[in-house]
Amino acid sequence: MAGSNPNAKPMNLTLKVWRQKNRTTQGQIVDYQVKDISPEMSFLEMLDVLNEDLLRRGDEPVAFDHDCREGICGSCNLFINGRAHGPEAGTTTCQLHMRKFSDGDTITIEPWRASAFPVNKDLSVDRSAFDRIIQAGGYVSVNTGGVPDGNEIPVPKDIADRAFEAATCIGCGACVAACKNASAMLFVSAKVSQLALLPQGKVERKTRVENMVAQMDKEGFGACSNIGSCAAECPVGISLENIAILNREFLSAKATSNNLA
């Protein structure tokens, strides 16, 4: 039924899937066979096929997170064959397609692994730590109304573009998953640099970086050792440059802020 290529050959695959009942139980890898997988399918559609099969047979489907399936919501988060979001660079799990695999392949699928991302069930993990980091300061403190006209403060185009590039982070957590240290610095740095670059965010830049880093540490993420796995696996290409900006912001905030605590 392939749309573009009527001759695409269906594949049979072995899946090694992490199954875990809930947060408190131990998990394990369970083997499944899936048949007649079209190369035109997305990876998640292949899992849909598996889940429909399981459900029909009276077995529990594999729980996994997903939503928009167009690579922007950041819900999907599978560790596929030892890589965050699988083998294709710059691609979320939902945008990965089965034509990247071959008939007879064995595919290992695991959840993100980090103490700060406990497993809810099977492949679904709890990433609320990211929300708490944003709550610690990932915003500009303005109320609705009473703000100046949008064109009141000009922002140089290159600054706006760089801020935008940092702001495109989808909060999927691939950086944490790929990092040997389970560090969240790429995620934190993306927000810190976006707001540090823009004039609107400069007002609170010191307290912001101090509070966000403190929360990041509190959540139990590791420390960055500049390995670069995070940026290599980031589906939207957030640059390591942001981590340097974060470090710089942190250092100068600590050295010059009026916060004695």
């Binding site: 890898i29 560790f79 064959n81 692994r113 980090a114 103490s115 240290n181 389970a182 590791g222």
Partner: peptide
């Protein structure tokens, strides 16, 4: 600290 942050490692 980094080892603790990872927790259970990956199978692959």
């Amino acid at each position: 600290r980094n080892k603790t942050a990872r927790g259970n490692g990956y199978v692959t």
